[in-house]
Amino acid sequence: MADYYTPTVVDPMISLAAMLPIERLFLSQVFDEELTSEAAYYCSEDGARDLISLAASEIRAALDAATPETSRLAQKLIDEQSDAILGEDDIDLDMCGDLWADVLQDIVRRSPELDHLTVTMAFTCSKMRPDGFGGLAMLITASTIRSESTHTLFDRFYTEAAANGEISHGNP
């Protein structure tokens, strides 16, 4: 059986002052967090975690500084987990992979220091399989999240090469 990995790096480091407590709590569970006295570096050897567990009491405390207008994460938690937040049990959040880019974008939107963040991912595999390698690059600005994988890049290359008569076969 092959194991698939997605090493991920978020750049540059994010000032601790730029993040709401709920965002920092979330990002520190989705990624590995390395701290300096003023900033956090987010990365992961295996990829962003899709399933995380947070204590309801920690979420309540972290939500005090957030509003749904400034944080899509706060809005999602209030909309989807309001009863659980008031309880004492841990709250499992699934599909974090669909949310972390929005959290990073909210940080960029509010931060006077950041005009963008980049996320670089490598797709690797423990066996030499054609579907196990590649990557993804993401540019997050206040207004847009742009991303492209090596697979979509190759699709564009195939289309351009076929249109130019360079190849007759490929993976368009």
Results as ranks from 00 to 15, higher is better:
153 L>W: 07
72 R>H: 10
29 Q>G: 06
128 M>K: 11
121 M>E: 10
27 L>E: 03
95 M>H: 13
121 M>A: 10
72 R>Q: 05
156 R>C: 07
13 M>T: 13
59 I>T: 02
92 D>Y: 12
152 T>A: 08
171 N>K: 15
159 T>V: 08
27 L>R: 01
152 T>D: 15
138 M>S: 07
18 A>H: 06
108 V>G: 00
149 S>A: 07
129 R>W: 09
19 M>I: 05
23 E>C: 08
63 L>H: 00
26 F>G: 02
159 T>F: 10
97 G>R: 15
89 D>E: 13
21 P>C: 05
87 G>F: 12
56 A>T: 01
125 C>V: 07
94 D>R: 15
96 C>I: 08
172 P>C: 11
10 V>P: 02
81 Q>Y: 12
131 D>Q: 12
14 I>W: 04
80 E>Y: 12
57 S>N: 07
126 S>E: 14
24 R>P: 01
124 T>M: 13
51 L>V: 14
159 T>K: 14
60 R>D: 01
135 G>Q: 03
60 R>K: 14
16 L>Q: 05
14 I>A: 00
145 I>E: 02
80 E>C: 08
45 E>P: 04
63 L>T: 04
102 D>R: 11
133 F>N: 05
28 S>D: 09
88 E>P: 04
65 A>M: 06
5 Y>I: 08
144 T>E: 08
148 E>N: 07
145 I>P: 01
9 V>L: 11
52 I>N: 01
170 G>V: 06
87 G>R: 09
32 D>V: 09
101 A>D: 09
44 S>G: 06
90 D>C: 08
42 Y>H: 06
113 E>C: 10
139 L>V: 10
129 R>G: 06
132 G>T: 04
105 Q>M: 04
88 E>C: 13
152 T>G: 07
164 N>R: 15
92 D>E: 13
167 I>H: 10
26 F>M: 09
132 G>D: 05
110 R>D: 02
60 R>S: 07
142 A>S: 10
43 C>H: 11
2 A>F: 12
137 A>F: 01
169 H>Q: 15
58 E>H: 10
161 A>Y: 03
165 G>I: 05
93 L>R: 13
59 I>F: 03
144 T>D: 02
88 E>R: 14
144 T>F: 06
46 D>A: 06
32 D>E: 13
159 T>M: 11
70 T>A: 09
60 R>I: 02
172 P>K: 12
8 T>H: 08
67 T>P: 06
108 V>P: 00
121 M>G: 00
155 D>V: 15
77 L>Q: 06
6 T>L: 04
149 S>G: 11
95 M>C: 14
19 M>P: 00
22 I>E: 02
76 K>S: 07
68 P>C: 09
134 G>W: 00
61 A>L: 03
120 T>Q: 05
3 D>K: 14
164 N>Y: 13
108 V>T: 03
66 A>Q: 01
57 S>K: 12
66 A>G: 00
92 D>C: 05
139 L>E: 12
